[in-house]
Computed example of a mutant assay.
Amino acid sequence: MAVTLAEEIALLSLDDESGAAKERSSAGWAVAGGILLELVLAERLTVADGRLTVADATPTGTALLDGRLAKLDEWTRRNGRRKVVDWLTKDQSTAVRATVESLCERGLVTEERHRALGLFPVRRYPEADGSVERELRERLASVVLEGTEPDDRTSGLIALLHAAKLHRLAFPELPRKQVRTRMAEIGEGQWAGDGVREAIRNMQAALAAITAVTAATVVM
């Protein structure tokens, strides 16, 4: 079973040794967006004009995606607005938990629990099997740094990372300005089909809007 876009983003965000989440807020939005884009690629969901439509509620066979698909189907049936931003706001925390649980089930990370200051429960997810993340980082480097033409999934992943300003998660040892232009170019989705390209643009707009509001809230 292939690792999903959401799981790839989560792997990039989790520190390999400590298991702590880096850039937790922005990465969380991107994880939730990754599930939506994966459902678009699976032809279960369409995204146009900032709105979601379930095109096919048939399960994909991937538990992480099917759990969100069932909830999306119910939500879009009873909610006339169906905006991408509304769904991400509603589902972000749940989507992140489900994604990390899926990584645990795959044996890619392990869950560690302890109490901060002896009082507050804390969970960490250090790496258990680094092979998937290594392949992922090699693929990102090949496309972004070496100019290899990406497939739909990789261009979608890079678009989400760029929209959420997660350049440092993908390339922690490089200055953001060195990779930003190439990631923006890939994020335009010129390698993707029309439907996927439209979805990528909508997802980028939603993530950019959310992260901008989040950043402004933190500053205030």
Rank of each mutant, 00 (worst) to 15 (best):
A98Q: 10
S155L: 07
L140Q: 07
E146Q: 11
E105K: 11
G156Q: 04
T94K: 11
T110R: 12
S93H: 09
R82C: 06
T4R: 03
T4F: 00
H167I: 04
Y125K: 05
D194E: 15
P121V: 08
K22L: 13
V219A: 13
P121E: 06
A2Q: 09
W191G: 13
E188Y: 11
D194K: 14
P150Y: 04
L41Q: 11
G147Y: 05
L37S: 11
A209M: 11
S26W: 04
G193L: 12
L117C: 03
P150V: 05
L39H: 02
E188I: 10
G195R: 13
M183H: 05
L88Q: 08
R82G: 03
A199K: 03
A163I: 11
A2F: 04
Q190E: 11
A70Y: 00
K165E: 05
R201M: 04
P150T: 10
C104A: 10
A63P: 00
L36F: 01
D16V: 15
D194T: 14
F120C: 01
L157A: 09
E74W: 13
A192K: 14
A32V: 10
D73K: 08
V218Q: 08
A27D: 11
D16A: 15
D194L: 13
E146R: 14
E149F: 02
A216Y: 11
